[in-house]
Design a protein around this nucleic acid. Structure first.
Length: 165
DNA sequence: GCCAACGTTGGC
DNA sequence: GCCAACGTTGGC
């Protein structure tokens, strides 16, 4: 009898501008299609590496202070981003067709808020997080992998148990 | 609002 | 395939 272990749950960080879509919005909606990502590296991560059940730090960018606000879960794996076909959408891509969609996205479900925002300044001040993508100078990638160590450490900084995330 | 860093486009 | 110009991101 062959038995396969399920693939380990992976961890990610996804940026969002809270004026457009915040962790509060995600909490209200409970789940959301993560549309509008128009960067090939981020798309490839969503398409090739993100799996249902993976956990995501929801990061508020372009706000003061920026930081990790909460936790989401991948609830649907990559599918064509509907906004690329919507002429009314700011994310409309005239070069994309339903037969050959250029952009993909996942759906993200709400898991929880963190007890408080973990600011970018705090992340930068923690030497053990110096390899996190989000703290790198000029880092713009809006979908990023997070190591298990970094995941645990950030949770520890706000007193959230790994089992509660 | 500024501007450095980055990704994409397009001329050659 | 190079690279200058351009548009965007996102911290500050």
């Amino acid at each position: 009898m062959t038995q396969s272990t399920p693939p380990a749950r992976r961890h990610w960080l996804m940026k969002t501008e809270p004026t457009a879509f915040s962790i509060d919005d995600l909490a209200r909606a409970q789940r959301s299609t993560w549309d509008g990502v128009r960067n090939y590296q981020a798309r490839n991560l969503m398409r090739d590496a993100m799996r249902a059940g993976d956990r995501v730090f929801i990061y508020h960018s372009n706000t003061d202070p920026a930081g990790i606000a909460g936790i989401g879960e991948v609830v649907a794996e990559a599918h064509a981003d509907p906004s690329q076909f919507d002429k009314m959408s700011p994310y409309f891509d005239p070069k994309s067709t339903p037969g050959a969609p250029r952009w993909q996205c996942v759906d993200v479900g709400y898991v929880r808020h963190l007890p408080r925002l973990v600011t970018l300044a705090e992340l930068k001040a923690e030497p053990r997080l110096c390899d996190m993508v989000v703290v790198q100078r000029g880092s713009r990638l809006s979908v990023q992998p997070v190591t298990p160590e970094a995941w645990r450490l950030v949770l520890a900084m706000v007193g959230v148990g790994v089992e509660d995330a």
